[in-house]
Design a protein around this nucleic acid. Structure first.
Lengths: 332, 332
DNA sequence: TTGAAAGCGCTAACAA
DNA sequence: TTGTTAGCGCTTTCAA
C-alpha cells in the first residue's frame, strides 16, 4: 500500500493538519517543521491521493473536453490549445472522443457529471446540439466548432458563412462559374458552411450545386465522382472539411482529371498534407489556437460569473491560396 | 449541490447500504426496494461520485496512456485501440501528451501516481526509456512503440529492424543502390529503424548513408536538401516516420526532382495523405490496432499476475508498395 | 435481505 | 503556529 498523509505525520512527528498545510501552503508552517515534513515525505514516498482531495474539497479541478473525432487534426490542434490554457489555469483535462455518435456523447456527458468536472468544452453532433439543454447539467458548457442554430449557449467557432464566402469569391475571381460543394452532414458547421456557400453563390448570380454526406472520405469521393461524369461538369469543387477534401481529391484523380488545369479544388482545414499534394490545395485555415484558448477563456469567465449572458464568439478564417485554384481563366 | 446516496436513501426510505447494494448489484436487494430506489434516484437526479467511490474502494478503475505526440496519426490510432480495449475491460483511460519532452513525461508519471491508476501504457522518449525503472512506480507499465534497449519490461512494438529491411530490400529490388535515410532521434524506434536499415544495407553490400534528426518535418527537409545537392546524390530516400517523410517529400519537390522518375521515396506509417501524394508513397503500415490491443492485453495479464516474467512483443509491419518506388530500373 | 457503523485520505473549522 | 476533530460520499464488514 502507498503511504498516506498520516504516515508522513507520524514520521515527521506532527499532526496531519500540519502536513496538509505544509503541502498546500495555505497557512504558515514553521521552517523547522517544513523541513522535517519534506524529509518524511521523501522517506515514505508519499504521494497525495487526488481522489481524496477532490472528495474533500468538493472541487475536481478538472474540465471535460468532448470532441467528435480526435483523428481530425482540427480537433487535435484545438485540444492542445485547450490543454495548454487549462494547465495554465491549474486545471486538468479529461479528453473524450465521441466518434460523432450521439450515444457516446450522452455517455461522456454523464461521465463528466460523475467526475464532478467544473466545466465542459464540447463539439457536439448536430442532433445533440439541437437538443442540448444547459439546465440538464450541473456544469457550464462551452460549445466549440459546432455552435448550432439555437442560441443561448456560450460558444466559439469559425465564422463559417464568411469563410465559405471567401472560398466562393476567390474561385469566382479565378474565373470559375460552376462551383459545386460537398458538405458534412454530421455537424452544424457543415450546415453553416453550406448555407454560406449558397448565399455567396446567390450574391454572385451563380447556381449552387451541393450535397450533404456523412463524415467519411469515401462518401465525398462517391458524390464527387457522380458529378464528374456529367457533360457540363463543375469547374470547381469545395469540401467542407479535411476528410471530405481527401475523398474529393481522390475522385478527381480517379476521373483522370488534373487539379487546377481541369478543375479547381478548395476546402476547409489547413492540414499539412494539403500543402504537399500537387499543386498545393487552397484551403481555409482555422484559427485553432484562438478557438481553444477562447473556449477556455469563456469557460473560466462563466465559472466566475454564472449569471453572465451567453456569448457566441465567431472567429475569422484565412484563405490560403495555393495552386489548386489557379485555373488560368479557363472557364468563361 | 448535487444529491448523494444519502438523499436517495432518505427518499426511498432505506439505508445507504441498501442503495449501494442496489447500485452495484453485488448483493441481492428485494425487487420492491430496488424499484423504490430507482424511483428515488430519478427524483433526486442522483449521480454517483467517482472520487468517493475510488477513495473508498481503493481502485481507480483507470489506466494512464502516455504518448509522445497526439498529433501523430500513429498515436491517435493506437490510442483508440487502447481505449476500446480498456472500455471493454471496464476501465477508463487518462490520455496524456508529452510532446517528446522528458520533463512532461516525469510530470505525467507523477500525476498517474496521484490518480492511483491501476496501470500505464507508455511511449517514452529515448532518454526516459533508458532510465525508466519499474520499481520506481506503484503501477505496472507496458511500453509501446519505443521499447528501448533495456529489456525486463512488458512492451509491444513494431518489429522495426525487420520493417526497415523490408523497405531496403524492396528498394534494392527496384534497382536502387544509393539508399539514404533520415531517422528520428527522439525515440528508440528511430534508432531501431536506423539499425535495421544499416544491417539490411550491409547484407546487400550497399554503403549506408543516414542521419538522425529531431522529430520535426523541417529538420528532415534540411537534411535531405543537403544530400540532394551532391553530385552523386541518393537514388532512394527513406524516412523513419510520417512527419519526417513529409519533410523529405518537400525537400525533393523543392530540389525540382520528381518522385519515382528522379528518385525513389519510401517511409514509415501509412497515413492517409501518403496515398494521395502523387504517385503514391510506398510505406510500412504498422498494425496499430494490434499494438493497442496487445498493450492492453499485456497490462491486464500483468495486473492479474504481477510475477509473470516480462514479455516483449514484436509485431510485423506490411510494406505497401506504391508509385514512389517504381523507379523503372533507372539506376545500375 | 437489510441496517448500523467504520473508515478510505484528505481539508478546514475550531481550539489551544 | 500547531493539534484535534468532523466529515466529504461511498463501500463493506458485522449484526440482526
Amino acid at each position: 500500500m502507498s503511504s498516506s498523509i498520516k504516515d508522513v505525520a507520524r514520521v515527521a512527528g506532527v499532526s496531519v493538519a500540519t502536513v496538509s498545510r505544509a503541502l498546500s501552503g495555505a497557512a504558515a508552517v514553521s521552517p523547522a517543521l517544513t523541513e522535517r515534513i519534506q524529509q518524511a515525505i521523501r522517506e515514505t514516498g508519499y504521494r497525495p491521493n487526488l481522489s481524496a482531495r477532490r472528495l474533500r474539497s468538493q472541487d475536481s479541478g478538472t474540465i471535460g473536453l468532448i470532441v467528435a473525432d480526435i483523428r481530425n487534426p482540427f480537433f487535435t490542434a484545438v485540444s492542445r490549445a485547450v490543454e495548454d490554457a487549462a494547465y495554465s489555469a491549474g486545471l486538468r483535462v479529461i479528453l473524450c472522443n465521441t466518434d460523432e455518435n450521439p450515444d457516446k456523447e450522452a455517455m461522456y456527458l454523464n461521465l463528466m457529471e460523475e467526475e464532478r468536472v467544473t466545466g465542459v468544452i464540447f463539439a457536439p453532433t448536430r442532433q445533440t446540439a439541437d437538443q442540448l439543454n444547459a439546465q440538464d447539467w450541473s456544469f457550464p458548457i462551452v460549445l466549440i466548432d459546432r455552435v448550432g442554430a439555437r442560441g443561448g449557449q456560450d460558444a466559439v467557432a469559425l465564422d463559417n458563412a464568411a469563410a465559405s464566402a471567401l472560398l466562393v469569391e476567390h474561385l469566382h475571381a479565378q474565373g470559375c462559374r460552376r462551383i459545386a460543394g460537398v458538405f458534412g452532414n454530421a455537424s452544424s458547421s457543415g450546415v453553416e458552411r453550406h448555407d454560406g456557400y449558397v448565399a455567396a453563390m446567390f450574391r454572385l448570380g451563380l447556381p449552387p450545386r451541393s450535397t450533404f454526406v456523412p463524415p467519411q472520405a469515401l462518401a465525398a469521393e462517391e458524390a464527387v465522382a457522380h458529378w464528374l461524369r456529367e457533360t457540363a461538369r463543375p469547374d470547381a469543387l469545395i469540401a467542407s472539411n479535411g476528410l471530405l477534401l481527401m475523398g474529393l481529391v481522390r475522385a478527381v484523380r480517379h476521373a483522370g482529371l488534373q487539379i487546377a488545369r481541369d478543375i479547381a479544388v478548395a476546402g476547409f482545414d489547413n492540414e499539412s498534407w494539403t500543402e504537399i499534394v500537387e499543386p498545393g490545395l487552397t484551403v481555409i485555415e482555422q484559427p485553432v489556437d484562438d478557438i481553444g484558448r477562447n473556449a477556455m477563456q469563456l469557460l473560466s469567465e462563466r465559472l466566475k460569473n454564472p449569471d453572465l449572458p451567453a456569448r457566441k464568439l465567431l472567429l475569422s478564417g484565412r484563405c490560403i491560396e495555393r495552386g489548386s485554384t489557379r485555373c488560368g481563366g479557363a472557364a468563361v
